[in-house]
Design a protein around this nucleic acid. Sequence first.
RNA 1: GCCGGAGUGGCGGAACUGGCAGACGCGCCGGACUCAAAAUCCGGUCCCGUUCACGCGGGGUGGGGGUUCAAUUCCCCCCUCCGGCACCA
Length: 858
Amino acid sequence: MDDRYKPQEIEARWQRVWRERDAYRTPDTSDRPKFYCLDFFPYPSGDGLSVGHCRNYVPTDVVSRFQRMRGFNVLHPMGWDAFGLPAENYAIKMGVSPRVTTERNIANYHRQMDLIGLSFDWSREITSCYPDYYRWTQWFFLLMYERGLAYRGTGQQWWCPVDKTILANEQVEQGRCWRCGSEVTKVDLEQWYFRITDYAQRLLDDLATIDWPEKIKLMQTNWIGRSEGAEVEFALPGRSDTLTVFTTRPDTLYGATYMVLAPEHPLVGELTSAERRAAVAAYQDEARRESEIERLSTEKDKTGVFTGAYAVNPVNGEQIPIWISDYVLMGYGTGAIMAVPAHDERDFAFATRFGLPITEVIAPPTGAQGTLSEAYTGDGVMVNSGQFDGLAAPGAAFAAIVARLAERGEARPKVNFKLRDWLLSRQRYWGVPIPIVYCDACGIVPVPAEQLPVLLPELEDYEPTDDARSPLARDPDFVATTCPRCGGPARRETDTMDTFVCSSWYQFRYPSPHDDIAAFDRDAVGYWLPVDLYVGGAEHAVMHLLYSRFFCKVLNDAGYVGFSEPYATLRNQGMILAEDGTKMSKSKGNVVTPDSVVERYGADSLRLYELFIAPFEQSVAWNDRGVQGCLRFLTRFWGFALGVPELERAGTPGAGGAGPVSRGDGADGAGVNDTADGDAVEADALDGDAVEADARRLRRTLHKIVRKVTGDLETFRFNTAVAALMETLNDVLEVWTGRCEQLETAQWREIVETFILLLAPMTPHIAEELWQRLGHDSSVLDAPWPAWDEALAADEVVTVVIQVNGKLRDRLEVPVGAASDDVVALARAAHNTVRFLEGKQIVKEVYVPGKLVNFVVR
RNA sequence: GCCGGAGUGGCGGAACUGGCAGACGCGCCGGACUCAAAAUCCGGUCCCGUUCACGCGGGGUGGGGGUUCAAUUCCCCCCUCCGGCACCA
C-alpha cells in the first residue's frame, strides 16, 4: 500500500463507498434522541458554490456528524429554493426555460456539496419549483385564506421598475430593491397580503423563548417596532367627524401648536380651503412624483403647505392650523400627527422653518427654558399645562392626560407596530401560481385543495411588462378556467407568490418529503421539529426568519403542530471575503471555489481550514496558504497514524511494561529539554522517572483534548478546537519522533484512535481511511464519540506565577492542592523574587490557589 | 441621526469566571536535505534596551482617565471600522 497522503484519491473513494452504502440515510424512526440540523434553504445560482458558502455547510456538517457519533438520530437534509428571479431573467435574455437552468444549477450545487463531503440524506431532497412541492405551498395559501389571513388589498406599494414587480416592505432597503438595487417607486395596486400584523405581539414575545443571536432578535424587535401611546381625537370646527392622531407623548398635548397630515391623507381634499386648494394640490403632486430616496432623506429641509383648515386641541380648546407635509407617513399610525415643536425634533425643524409657535410644556430637571433653541425630548415636569402642571412627564402625566380625555371619549391607550402586512403577490412568471379564481358571479373563489396544484405553464415569452401584470396573463389557456363554485366561466389569478412563501415552510417538509396526501406528516413533524440547529447568514434577519416564524404560529393556531417556534437555535456564520478583503464577486474575478481548493489541497484540508480560519460568526478574508497549513497538519497526522501499526508489527516492547529502559544520552537530553528550569525537578520527583512522566503526561493530554474538542464543538468554537488538535499533535509528535519506544504500543494506539475519532466530524475522509488502515471493519461514521475521564485529565502540577507589585518576576511548579503557606513560602524564596523583595517591606500577600502569588511591597 | 458589534505582532486569530498577553496557523529569517527547485524537517520570530551566553530589565492589547494587589477582560470619555434602521409621531 502506498503510504503517502493523497487526499483527492481517498476522498473520491470514500465518497463512492458511502454513497453505495447509503451511509447518510436518516431512518424515520429510531430509539435514539433526534437532532434536526438545517441550513438555510439555498437558491441554486448559476455561479455555483464559493468557499464562502462552505462556511455555512461545513460547520453544520461537522455538528451533524458529531451528534451522530454521540448517539443522536440526525436529520441533515438539503433542498432548493428554486423559484426566483435570476433564472427568469436569464431565460428572458437567453430564451432558455428557467426550469432547465435551475435543474442545471441544482446538479452543480449537488456535485459541489458531494465534493466537499457533506453528509446530506439526499433521499429527502426537495425542490420548491416542482409541483409535488409547490402544490403544498398553494395549500398553505389556502390555509391562510380560510383563516382570514390572506386578503386582497389596495394601497400604495413598492414597485421595482427593473424587476418589474411589487415588493414587500422587508424587501426594500434604503429605497432600493433588495435584489437588483434599483430605486423603487410607489404605485397604487390591488395586491395579495398575509396578515402577519395579527401576529406582531406574539412574534415579539416569543423571541424570549428561542436561542438566537441577540443581534437578530434585536433586528426583529426593531422591525416589529412596538410603541405604546394613545390615540387622541381633534375636533374639526364645522364638521361632525374628527381627526385622529397617534402619539407616544400625550403628556405634551398642551404643546401641540399645529397638526400635520400626510399628503395622501383622505381628508386633505375635504379640509383644504378654497384659497389654499391650488397650493395643496401642487404639493401633493410633487410628493407623489418624488422618488422614495429623496422623500426618505432626513438631510433635506422640511417642506409642507398650510391647508387653510383648523382643528381644536382637546385639552385647551385652542384652534391650531392643519398643514400637510411628506414627513408624515400615511402608512403609520393614522397618517396624521399633532405637532409639538418644543419636544419633537422633526416638529421643531418644521415649526422653525414655517414660523409656527413653539410652546414649552415639559421643563427639564434644570428648570424651564422659556425660549428653546432645540427640542427637549427628555423627561421632566409639566408646565404651561393647566391643572396638570407639576406632574412628572411622561410617567404620571401620560396616564393622567389619557384618563382625563378618555372620560369624554377623546382619547384611548393604543399600541402601534411598524410591522406591515406581508405583500406576497409578484408580477413575474417563475413562481408559485396563487390558487385563486375570479368569477363574475361568485367573486374571489379559492381553488379547492383537492384540485391543487394549479400548474405553472411553460411559456414561450417570459418578458415581464410595465403594466404590473404577470406574463401568465398573456397565456389564455392558463387564464381561462371554470369557477369551482358555480361552474361558470372564470379567470385565474395570474400573479405568482413571493419565493419567501416557499421557504417559510420547507423545514416542515423534510421529515416526510414525499408525502402526497399532506404538506407534511404530523407525526413525523412532531418527532423532528422544532429544528435543533439552524444556520445561515444574518441577511435574512427580517425576511425569511420573520415570515417562517409567522407560518409556524399559524400552523400552531390551526392545530397542525404543537409548537410555535420553528427554529430552537439559530447561528449566523460570518462572511468569507476575498484575499484582498473585499467581497467575492464574479465581476471582480476574485471568487475562490471549493473545486479549485479541493483540487490542490483536498476536501478535508478545505473543511479544516473553513473551521480554523476565524471564529464562526466572524467575517474574514480567505487565504489559500492557510489551507496549505491544514494540509501540512493532516499529512503529519497521517504519517504518525500509519507509524503506529508499523511499531506494533515491529513488536518493540513497550517501556512501561518491560520495566524502565536505560536510554543514555538521548533520554537525558530530552528530559532536560522538557523540564528546562530548576523548579521543574520537583514535578519529575512526583511522577517518578522520566519515562513514566511521558506516559502520564500524554495520557493527561489525551483526556484533555477530548474534553476540549467536545466542549468546543458543542459551543460552535470550531477554530479553537482545531488549534487545540494541532497543539496536541505537536506535543504527541515530540515524544513520538524523539522517543517513541518509551510508551507502550497500546498507549500509542489509544492516542491515534482517539485522535481519529476527534477528527472524524471535521475531516471524515482521512479519518475513515486511517480507521480502516488501523484494522477496523466498521465505519468511523458510526463509531462512538470518545469519552474523557475528569480525573485523568486533571493536572498534577500547576505553574504558579510570582508577582511583585503586580509585575511578573518568577514561576513556580507546585503540586495541585499544595498548602497556601507552603506555596507563599516557596515563592518568597524563589531566586528571582528575592532580588525584588530585598530591602522592602511586604505589606500584602495575595495568593490565588493554583494561579499566582502577588507580593505588594513598599 | 438612532441602535448594535468590533479594534490584540507583518497577517488570521488565542487568552472561557479580573490572574503568565500573543496559543495555533500563515508569512518572514536562519539551517538541514537536494545538482537544483518544490515538498519535508529543525531552530528563531511583539517592540526597545542589556548580556559572550543562560538570562535580565523596560514598554505593550485603538487613544485618554478610573476602580483593583492585579485590567485585553470591569467603569467613564473620545477616535476608527463594520452591520442594521432611517422623518414610525
